[in-house]
Amino acid sequence: MSSSDIFIGETIGTAILILLGAGVVAAVVLKASKARNAGWLAITFGWGFAVLTAVYISAPLSGAHLNPAVTLGIAIKDNDWSNVPTYFAGQLLGAMIGATLAWVAYYGQFHAHLTDREIVGGPGTQSTKAVEAREAQAGPVLGVFSTGPEVRNVVMNLATEIIGTFVLVLAVLTQGLNDNGNGLGTLGALITALVVVGIGLSLGGPTGYAINPARDLGPRIVHALLPLPNKGGSDWGYAWIPVVGPLIGAAIAAGLYRLAFA
Rank of each mutant, 00 (worst) to 15 (best):
L203N: 10
F7H: 01
R215Y: 03
G13W: 07
L201E: 15
G164I: 07
L228F: 10
L225E: 01
S58T: 10
L170D: 01
D216H: 05
L158A: 12
V55A: 15
V172N: 02
L190G: 12
I74S: 02
T14D: 14
N180P: 01
G185V: 00
Y106I: 02
G122Q: 04
P229H: 03
A15T: 07
T100V: 13
M156P: 01
A130N: 15
G233W: 03
Y106M: 06
I211W: 15
A69C: 04
I76L: 15
L92D: 12
A262C: 00
S4I: 12
I6H: 00
V167Y: 10
W47Y: 05
D78V: 04
I12L: 14
N79L: 09
M1L: 14
G122W: 03
N212S: 05
Y107I: 00
R117N: 05
S234T: 07
L217F: 11
P68N: 04
P123Q: 06
L194V: 12
I221D: 03
Y257N: 13
L66E: 12
A130H: 07
T186M: 14
A102N: 00
V151E: 04
N83P: 00
M96A: 12
L177R: 14
R152S: 08
K31Q: 11
V196G: 01
L158K: 00
V172D: 03
I18F: 11
V154G: 00
